[in-house]
């Protein structure tokens, strides 16, 4: 097993060393990603403060719990899988061809080809917001709450990662229109921070089930808070977050396989 992972470890370790080598710009980048997270949070705060007590059934602190969960899972996924989203660019630069010359599976190589430690800035902010929200909300602490929290973070991470992989797979087809995938990668991120009660029907279908963003944060948070959830998305569905993550990965791997076949066959 150790031998199997050695190639990936070697690449990742080198990426980490390289990023730490440029300390000043690394610090600026850490600050930058934290700032991006901060403006996303500002949006939530502005909206829920402007609301008359609650918005979509949630008050500000409840909304920040959803935001914190989603933000933490997303920034972790972005750190480890974010570069898969730039596949079209890598195809144009020819770096994908180089991966073909190495004796490991393509996707595993691509995922481990980089890690964006600068996203730790955003992660740190998400941790602070999450802890703040967990403390401020009325949560019945016990094994159930801890299990739900772990479930949300693990499955949320898996779903966001799956979105990046699906985006990579589709970009083999969309070499000049790769921004299409922004709709579900970054649109999906945005959706995961919202209360699902405000969604129009089409969005509920797309981000409740096709790309199961509601399972990343909203549904587990509603279980934690003892809130009922939304139409079509009752809180108890939150226990099915692992099923949602599995579904997201099935979709992602199908997209990836189709993309690779297209690249070797028709495109290029």
């Amino acid at each position: 097993m150790g031998d199997l992972l050695r190639p990936y470890r070697a690449v990742l370790a080198s990426r980490i060393r390289a990023q730490r080598a440029y300390r000043t710009s690394f610090r600026a980048d850490l600050f930058g990603t934290a700032l991006v997270g901060l403006t996303e949070m500002a949006e939530v705060i502005v909206l829920f403060s402007a609301a008359n007590g609650t918005l979509g059934g949630l008050d500000l602190m409840q909304a920040l719990l959803v935001f914190g969960l989603a933000e933490l899972a997303f920034s972790n996924a972005d750190m480890m899988f974010g570069h898969v989203d730039s596949l079209a660019q890598q195809v144009r630069a020819g770096t994908v061809d180089v991966l073909y010359l190495r004796p490991q599976p393509l996707l595993a190589q691509l995922v481990t080809s980089d890690i964006s430690l600068r996203r730790l800035g955003r992660t740190a902010l998400a941790v602070v917001v999450l802890i703040w929200a967990l403390a401020a909300n009325d949560i019945d602490w016990g094994p159930r709450a801890v299990a739900l929290l772990a479930l949300a973070l693990v499955c949320g991470f898996a779903i966001f990662c799956a979105n990046f992989v699906a985006a990579g797979g589709l970009q083999f087809f969309l070499l000049n229109a790769e921004q299409v995938t922004n709709a579900f990668v970054y649109g999906g991120r945005h959706a995961s921070t919202q209360p699902a009660t405000v969604w129009v029907r089409g969005i509920t279908v797309i981000f409740g089930f096709v790309f199961p963003m509601a399972f990343c944060a909203y549904l587990p948070a509603m279980l934690l808070l003892g809130e009922p959830g939304a139409d079509w998305l009752p809180a108890w569905l939150g226990w099915f977050a692992p099923v949602a993550a599995l579904w997201a990965w099935i979709l992602a791997l199908l997209a990836w396989r189709a993309g690779v076949r297209h690249y070797q066959g028709g495109g290029g």
Partner: peptide, 25 residues
Amino acid sequence: FGQRSQLWWDLPVRESFGILAAIHS
């Protein structure tokens, strides 16, 4: 490939060799 590097542009040459050695076990 003359135009596509398989080395890591921000690492010393020695380290690129080390990684490739790991990649090829």
